[in-house]
Simulated assay, not measured.
Amino acid sequence: MGTYGDQVRQALLDSAEELFVTFGVDAVSNRRIAEHAGNSNHSAVSYHFGSREDLVRATLLRYTEDAGARRRELVGMLGPEPGLRDLLSCLVVPFTDQLASMSVPSWRARFIQQLRTVPSMVATVAANAISDPVVDDLIQRVRAHVSDLPDSVYTGRSWLLGRLVVDACADYEARLAREDLEPDWTGFANFLIDACAGMLEAPVTSEGDFLSARGASVWA
């Protein structure tokens, strides 16, 4: 169940995520986050998280352990010679499963999407990126499946895939909130995996170094 302090922190994180998505990270004050969480102490955010950057970091990383555990579980289920889709599943499904576990409306995918596009938050996201050896290994195994791709093409497509997964999940999350639909995150995950595999295996007609300077990564 958690302590009262844990419950307060959770409520503040929920409030911050929703308000950041609705109004923008830079437009929401700590006081407004506390009020939206039903907390009469307007300094609650500072008390529980410290700085504004610490709040954003806590919101960004709040599900990291759960996603990591799910990914390790999926990797443990792989056969001796997994195919490209099997490896991509281990990268995509922990995120879509996380979204599936949330009530509608959820804000998670749209929050991550926003952090990657708000200039004031880009440095915060980069500074708090956590290296996961399981993810690193999966990415290397994915690369081995498309070893014929030139490095610049693979890096550029990886950059596109990272945006595709987050942006598509954010769009689907918003649609579920807007329309009376039964969520199907499992089906959506399979749709994304198909799209990712198709992009990686697509023919190469141009080998220009178009996106590698952007620091592309499949699951950053």
Rank of each mutant, 00 (worst) to 15 (best):
D86W: 06
S103Y: 00
R32K: 15
A197G: 14
V118I: 07
V25C: 15
L161W: 07
A100L: 05
P133K: 08
D171Q: 14
A189L: 10
D184A: 02
L60V: 05
A58K: 04
H145P: 08
V134D: 11
E73P: 04
R178D: 11
R57V: 06
F191L: 12
H36T: 12
G68A: 04
D97M: 08
A67D: 06
A123F: 03
V166M: 10
S29P: 13
S152V: 14
G83R: 03
F20L: 08
E173V: 08
E179I: 00
D97T: 06
V146P: 10
D54P: 03
D209L: 06
Y63E: 13
P119C: 00
S152Y: 06
Q140L: 14
E53G: 11
W219Y: 10
V204L: 13
P105G: 01
N30M: 12
F23A: 15
E179R: 01
R110F: 06
D180P: 01
G83F: 04
F111D: 07
S43M: 05
D14A: 12
R62I: 03
A123I: 05
S217Q: 05
A100F: 04
V75I: 15
S43Q: 07
P133E: 13
R9P: 09
S29C: 12
I112F: 04
V122Y: 00
D171H: 13
A100V: 06
A189F: 11
V45S: 07
L88K: 04
E179S: 00
W185F: 02
R32S: 15
L164S: 03
A197D: 11
N41A: 09
T22K: 15
E73I: 05
S152W: 06
V8Y: 11
E35F: 09
F95K: 09
D209E: 11
V28S: 14
S120Y: 07
R52Y: 09
N128D: 03
T205H: 13
H42E: 04
C169I: 09
F95D: 10
D136E: 13
F191C: 07
I193D: 05
E179W: 01
A220G: 01
W107P: 04
R52F: 07
T124P: 01
T124F: 01
V93G: 02
R163E: 02
D137A: 13
R163V: 02
L176I: 06
G83H: 04
R72E: 12
L87A: 07
R178S: 10
R32V: 08
R175C: 07
E207N: 13
L200V: 13
S212G: 05
A127Q: 12
L200C: 12
N41H: 12
T124M: 04
R110M: 14
W185H: 01
D194M: 04
C90D: 06
D14R: 13
V125M: 00
Y4W: 13
L115R: 01
Y4R: 14
G162M: 03
A67C: 08
N128T: 00
R72P: 04
A123R: 12
R163G: 01
A37N: 11
F191W: 08
C90A: 08
S51D: 13
D132I: 04
T155E: 15
V104T: 09
F188C: 03
